[in-house]
């Protein structure tokens, strides 16, 4: 489902993706399409695309961990308010995520893994986990003042 709503925000676009790693390319394409409509420099666009893709990857890797076969979809909503605050919402039906337990690894302890959350926190101003409203289980909100 694609949805565009420009009544309250400068931009508000929503798209659903099947929850699997093959969808991450589509997530990036969607994000790039939306950011093409916003006047920000390319470096910032690239960072925002990375943050969105990392958050989507976390849904695939963690919220759906040990769930072998599913055709569930996740939804991503990118909104730019009139005050130029960018809000990116992620909705999924995976296992409930306890936001208090979501931490990146110590960046000085160099080992594979644990960097996605660090990148998101580096790029965005705020990361908030909420319980999703039905039918969603998890609702992650990333914000950044542009």
């Amino acid at each position: 489902m694609n949805e565009t709503n420009k009544s309250e925000n400068k931009i508000s676009e929503t798209r659903e993706f099947i929850v699997n790693s093959a969808s991450l390319k589509e997530v990036r394409s969607f994000s790039r399409e939306v950011f093409e409509k916003i006047k920000i420099d390319q470096d910032l666009k690239d960072e925002l695309v990375l943050a969105i893709a990392e958050a989507a990857q976390n849904i695939v890797k963690h919220a759906y961990k040990d769930i072998e076969t599913n055709d569930d979809k996740m939804e991503i909503k990118i909104s730019l308010g009139k005050n130029d605050e960018l809000e990116i919402g992620f909705f999924d039906k995976g296992k409930p995520v306890d936001g208090a337990k979501v931490r990146h690894r110590n960046i000085d302890d160099v080992k594979p893994g644990g960097l996605g959350t660090f990148f998101i926190q580096q790029i965005m101003d705020a990361v908030v986990f909420r319980e999703g409203e039905k039918p969603w289980i998890n609702h992650l909100i990333l914000t950044k003042q542009l």
Partner: peptide, 16 residues
């Protein structure tokens, strides 16, 4: 043109 944290992990793992 693009590498995410998974790709970075491969570089770390390869290096180690």
């Amino acid at each position: 043109q693009y590498m995410d944290s998974s790709g970075i992990s491969v570089l770390i793992e390869s290096h180690q």
